[in-house]
Amino acid sequence: MDNFLQQFCQQLINGISLGSIYALIALGYTMIYGIIKLINFAHGDIYMIGAYFGFFATTQLGVGFIPAIIIAMAGAAIVGIIIERIAYRPMRNAPRIAILITAIGVSFFLEYGMILLVSPQPRTFPAVFSPTVYHMGPLVANSQQLVILISALILMVTLSYIVNSTKAGKAMRAVSFDADAARLMGINIDKVISMTFALGSALAAAGGVLVGVYYNSIDPLMGMMPGLKAFVAAVLGGIGIIPGAMMGGIILGVVEAMVSGFLSSTFRDAAAFGILILILLYKPAGLLGKNVREKV
């Protein structure tokens, strides 16, 4: 294999594993946006909270990887429901900018609240399973990268199933389509929205635990940048569209890896946010989005 191709393939592996993390966070962003048209800026911090739940589950309770993820998902789901109940529900009929600013406030509250609670020092995530390194010719990948990718795929498929094939999912789609009409049909909107937050937060928490395991360290501000990147990923794929978030995440990860690998690592973030600007300029509905006229 010639050198360029080898580089390209290795960067593709790097990019896909990074992209699956963005995808996991982006899934939650996109769901919440789909239902209540809110860019939940606190979503990256839910991911951080999830990582801490996972951390305490493994260190204090001594559980393994799978139970830790489940505990983290459950814990973050509850946090998500509480946040929605306390911060967003009273604002439901307020102008959209007000609720957006509330989301930023919640984000700061979670970040600095956690600094107060657990100190700003990074924590070392215990090694819950030892990574196996796979060599495929000159290419290198490890089992953690695979676990992240597979978890992201499983969660996405599960999510698609819930949204498309269950009664609760039907209710969610109905609320997303027209909240007032859904209410008239006897759907309990509050309950549906709570469930959306629970699901979205649980996904972010799974991402948090996976990142903790993969990179070995977590800290209270770890959600800031991934939160923004996941937002870009969600917009890239078409915000509100579940497969779009997955696709957007992977594309973003690969673009970042390619830019770092073949141009310069200093341009990496510029490329990520450059994509956001290009998408907003030329295809504001996202790659998978259809141009529908907004209901007024």
Binding site: Q7, Q10, N14, M222, S260, S265, T266
Partner: peptide
Amino acid sequence: KEAFLSKDLDFKASLTKIKA
């Protein structure tokens, strides 16, 4: 000469380039 930003988590892209 490669660069990163503080708080970055993933350095594999730069490291792959360095390795090459």
